[in-house]
Design a protein around this nucleic acid. Structure first.
Lengths: 174, 174
DNA sequence: TTTTTCATGTAAGGCGTTACATGATTAC
DNA sequence: GTAATCATGTAACGCCTTACATGAAAAA
């Protein structure tokens, strides 16, 4: 899922300390993306050694030690590369949300194509679910077990419908 | 998320080999729950040592070696215990789907209470999202960046609405 | 003055992913 | 006879979670 790209996006919005990022992940972004502070500190250190981010050490006169992270051009380039790259099959919906936030902060990059690709993918999945429904749940008097299994499938169907409705409204904006 | 409970549920529906479970996870269950064959074999071995499942070795006259797994009473008890246990906060929606499938195969156990609990949780989350929307996205002429960030939040809102609609329809059936 | 918040880190264990590996059976 | 499918496993690496740990500043 690449926490790193989520962190770069967040840091482009506002340079921050690891602690602040952890808190922000608990709020706005974190409602659909969560990361512990250990993950965040680890990835920040890695991105610093990769030259994607820069550490601004703020000693504040012998007081509290804080490290404010800023995105470097290499980090920005890497984010653009990732947004344009078609998401792997395992890549979840959260990745798309980060890509949209990245496009919000960087201006038009490759999200439109990715969104179109995902729309086709979700259309196929919805069609598959509907096929399964027609094949397995067209019985006249279903048992309790069948009705419950049908509910599980219906959750998949309504999730896909909801996703597609959202995506089709979003497409003209990217 | 406990693959083990998903495996027990699947084995209660039909005793199978590890390979068959992996294939089934690729199809019906696996549309929302995926596991590699290594995970499955490892967990089956563990459940066998825990006494949750039993291995029926089918040598088939010097031919192909297959191990058919059957659920033992202890495994069934463990599944019931897990279904009745309130899901931890990190527990995803997939766990609920497995719990419903478990209730389909075992008869009425504790899913109703769990569903009611989750409905309250999702109602709160939806309310939080709507608060954020009222606070951050009520501007008259939003910028492109603001509109895109709003789309991300709207995805959260419509997901929650969809979830709640499904759950309220499902509640009378459990 | 005590608790909460800010801030960063180490260490251990478990789980998941990926690659590698083997061998029998069935389909073409 | 060759490829695909069935079937099971080992090993390495990395990531994530949880617990433990420290310390200063701000709030109660």
């Amino acid at each position: 899922m690449s926490i790193q790209h989520a962190l770069i996006t967040s840091l482009l919005e506002k340079p921050s300390t690891g602690y602040q990022l952890a808190r922000r992940f608990d709020r706005s972004i974190g409602h659909f993306w969560q990361a512990t502070h250990q993950q965040i500190y680890r990835e920040l250190r890695r991105m610093a050694t990769s030259g994607w981010v820069e550490i601004e050490e703020k000693g504040e006169e012998g007081g509290r030690k804080r490290k404010v992270y800023h995105v470097l051009p290499a980090g920005r380039d890497e984010l653009v590369r990732w947004v344009e790259e078609p998401g792997s099959s395992g890549e979840s919906n959260e990745a798309l949300m980060v890509k949209i936030r990245a496009e919000a902060v960087l201006g038009p990059i490759g999200v439109r194509r990715e969104l179109q690709r995902l729309i086709r993918w979700h259309e196929e999945r919805l069609a598959t679910y509907r096929d399964i429904e027609a094949r397995d749940f067209s019985t006249d008097s279903p048992s309790r077990a069948q009705r419950l299994q049908h509910r599980v499938l219906l959750k998949g169907i309504s999730s896909e419908e909801e996703w597609l409705a959202w995506a089709r409204e979003t497409l003209p904006m990217v």
